[in-house]
Nucleic acid binder design. Structure first.
Ligand SMILES: NC(=O)c1ccc[n+]([C@@H]2O[C@H](COP(=O)([O-])OP(=O)(O)OC[C@H]3O[C@@H](n4cnc5c(N)ncnc54)[C@H](O)[C@@H]3O)[C@@H](O)[C@H]2O)c1
Ligand SMILES: NC(=O)c1ccc[n+]([C@@H]2O[C@H](COP(=O)([O-])OP(=O)(O)OC[C@H]3O[C@@H](n4cnc5c(N)ncnc54)[C@H](O)[C@@H]3O)[C@@H](O)[C@H]2O)c1
Lengths: 219, 219
DNA sequence: TCTATCTTGTGACAAAATTCACATACTAAT
DNA sequence: ATTAGTATGTGAATTTTGTCACAAGATAGA
């Protein structure tokens, strides 16, 4: 760690395989650092950061160690610098183009969500099959027909698709956006989605979260 | 496994500590079994079930083994019976009383969500601070003021609170529902919540899911 | 009844994630 | 400068989670 090759912090770590959970925590750190920066806090230790997030300090350090050395012994981390590094790692230092498919109850909530557009994310399109929705504008985003979905996704250069449609239509729509070359999907539909390995799918499953809470109600 | 004491299937397994992930998967199995039952499929093997869910068959068996022996060697599992057993384990064989706090964009989507009321879950109350919301009815649920939140939660016998309010109000509201004796919280607010160990909190963090997807967009 | 064929349930193994604990390195203050 | 104090980064230990592989139990057909 004095002058070994992997001391080169500017290189994204393709070297090892990074656990999925580490990436999620990086995102968590990023948000907390944002808050700290906003409060004009300039430096923070792994201990303090982990206390704020309710976790273990060594885990924070280990997580960061996957990508380089960002801290200063005896001091901790500089908030702004660490935030910038994490954003670079997560690639949220650029604009991420999001397409929403399904502008029903959930889709509308998502469009209304300030944090959705927050910082790097930009909703470049919203699609729906219903004539009731097509042409309407929600929070500045105009709803389009799914007729030319595949072409539109391609043309708009969407990076991520957010899926909020009924379960029975999910797989067909996934097939379309996969053909359109999308590489990441945030799926709110409570159904398994089959697609090529290379495409990253994150499931958000409200039903599971709620139902599994029930288990812990036992006295 | 012939006549050991733990062969008693009717006892909920307090014996070992059950991993959180196991409980979530149980809920996943439950939903899939529901679908299978609906399609009049009467039996299924761990292999078939795991294929449907995109996972490993041994994991299915191990998960179930925490709670007893539900299968028939050479045959598999009887769908209805297994479903009933899992629901018993998850305690979704009774009514679960849910209180929603925060009837904004997200809260309204949740109220509209059929799957929310699905089966065992019943929304017994919705609360909001805004006069614009109080008194209005969404999907059959009337919005109440938070003025007597603590008493109401107690009186209504809510089991689970779903939190969908702005981050800055989250902790104060949590403190209230904790005092009211709630034991489980489904938290949509992107902020850490501090409460007694005994209370189970599940976080659903859309921001993290979206942001962490960004990482995988690297070519 | 016997046999061939399944599939379970689980002990043993492997992998992954988390936590510990400390040598090392920097700060800050005298 | 020197020193006392502090926090990093990381091997090693531990805990947790997932997979393998197979003996044993059950089916189904002859
Ligand atoms: N509402 C919630 O709180 C909630 C929570 C968790 C999960 N979900 C899931 O999210 C999905 C959407 O839920 P919702 O409550 O918004 O439903 P919804 O019925 O309100 O909205 C679905 C929308 O999708 C549109 N649609 C249908 N097929 C489409 C297609 N092929 N392409 C584009 N648009 C299409 C419909 O016209 C409708 O506007 C469902 O799968 C649901 O299970 C919803
Ligand atoms: N909308 C989304 O898609 C979405 C997605 C993920 C997370 N979230 C999070 O969910 C929360 C709610 O989001 P939203 O978009 O519905 O916001 P919103 O502003 O539309 O709704 C918030 C509602 O909470 C009410 N409220 C405020 N303080 C309250 C209190 N102390 N008790 C009861 N009610 C109170 C407000 O009157 C309002 O009706 C936020 O923390 C947000 O970050 C929203």
């Amino acid at each position: 760690m004095t002058d070994s090759p992997k001391n080169d912090v500017s290189v994204a770590a393709d070297e090892k395989k990074i656990p999925k959970a580490v990436i999620k925590r990086l995102s968590l750190y990023s948000r907390m650092l944002q808050e700290l920066e906003h409060k004009n806090i300039t430096k923070i230790s792994s201990k303090e950061l982990s206390d704020l997030l309710g976790m273990n300090p060594a885990k924070v350090r280990k997580d960061l160690a996957y990508f380089g050395q960002f801290g200063v012994p005896g001091l901790g981390y500089y908030v702004s610098e660490l935030k910038a590094q994490i954003k670079r790692i997560l690639r949220t230092d650029r604009e991420i183009r999001v397409a929403l498919i399904g502008v029903g109850h959930l889709g509308q909530a998502l469009l209304a969500y300030g944090g959705f557009l927050r910082q790097s994310f930009r909703v470049v399109a919203a699609f729906d099959t219903s004539p009731d929705k097509i042409g309407r504008t929600f929070n500045g985003v105009k709803v389009m027909s799914t007729e030319h979905l595949e072409d539109q996704i391609r043309t708009l250069g969407a990076d991520i698709v957010v899926l909020a449609i009924p379960a029975e239509n999910a797989q067909a729509t996934v097939d379309q956006v996969v053909r359109a070359g999308i590489r990441a999907i945030l799926n709110f539909v409570p159904a398994r989605i089959v697609c090529p390995e290379a495409i990253k799918v994150h499931y958000v499953d409200l039903g599971i979260e709620l139902e599994s809470l029930s288990y812990y109600l036992k006295d």
